[in-house]
């Protein structure tokens, strides 16, 4: 089994989000970066599948040199080799094109990634990669097993679950509880030192979209707590202050 896992390099969920350059750039100073949490689930399941069936697990990120510690962490968790496509991931189509170019050469049986990143939350890349490669793309996958040349999986749909069977190769956007995310152990961290991390230049490098500006959501208003016995006061405030009644 030859598996590709695409990971994002995103700010930790507790980071303070600020912008620079007239609100056109994200301010990375003092921000801790992590593997995208949904990608982390995909990686954890890929490690399990590789351990069950043997083969090779490659982890890929489209990003500049600063993302290499994140790729090394993925190697410490259990990937066999890493690929960094040396480019600023400007938009979803750009990223999908880079993944598709690499995947065409890699002959992967399975391409996994998170259902969405947690920085821009586009949730589009898996679908685009499927389209570019002419393969099925399924998301959000919550359970995934491989039986011969087929995958048996379940995904979340509106109001329920869908159980599917699909021929390999295909692309999955993953979410919990597909696997429990893994903490790298010390042996993994040591071995990550010597595993290959290949840097590839991007192809079809033109942007499909451009960010004009970012804006933060309005600051949270103050919370007023009203005792449950005091419904009249609540109604009065909703009327006079919040003006929603």
């Amino acid at each position: 089994m030859n598996i590709l896992v695409c990971i994002t390099h995103v700010p930790d969920t507790t980071s303070r989000i600020q912008f620079t350059d007239n609100n056109t750039k994200f301010d990375k100073s003092g921000v801790q970066f992590i593997i995208g949490p949904y990608d982390d689930y995909a990686l954890a399941r890929a490690v399990e599948l590789r351990d069950q069936s043997g083969g090779k697990l490659t982890v890929l990120n489209v990003g500049e040199a600063e993302t290499e510690p994140t790729l090394r962490k993925a190697l410490a968790i259990g990937a066999d080799e890493a690929v960094r496509i040396n480019a600023d991931p400007v938009d979803s189509l750009f990223v999908a094109r880079q993944i598709a170019h690499h995947a065409k050469e890699g002959a992967y049986d399975l391409i996994l990634m998170g259902r969405e990143s947690i920085d821009f939350n586009g949730g589009m890349v898996h679908g685009m990669v499927g389209e570019l490669l002419g393969m099925p793309s399924i998301s959000p996958v919550m359970k995934l097993d491989i039986e011969g040349d087929k995958a048996v999986l379940s995904r979340e749909i509106e109001g329920g679950k869908e159980f599917l069977e699909v021929n390999l190769p295909f692309i999955a956007g993953c979410q919990e509880p597909i696997a429990e995310w893994k903490i790298p152990n010390m042996r993994g961290i040591m071995s990550a030192r010597t595993k290959p991390l290949n840097v590839i230049e991007p192809k079809e490098a033109e942007k499909a979209a451009e960010v004009k500006a970012y804006a933060l959501p309005p600051a949270k208003g103050e919370v007023k707590l009203i005792e449950k016995e005091n419904v009249e006061e609540l109604v009065r405030l909703l009327n006079t202050e919040a003006k929603v009644l």
Binding site: T14, Q32, E68, P69, R72, K73, A76, I183, P184, N185, M186, I189, A192, R193
Partner: peptide, 24 residues
């Protein structure tokens, strides 16, 4: 929600591997 205390930016003195060990 512990995140560490690093007032003197001592993280700059640690290798990426040491930081990965600490985070793990």
């Amino acid at each position: 929600h512990f995140e560490g205390v690093d007032f003197y930016e001592l993280d700059e003195l640690l290798t990426e591997e040491q930081k990965m060990v600490r985070l793990a």
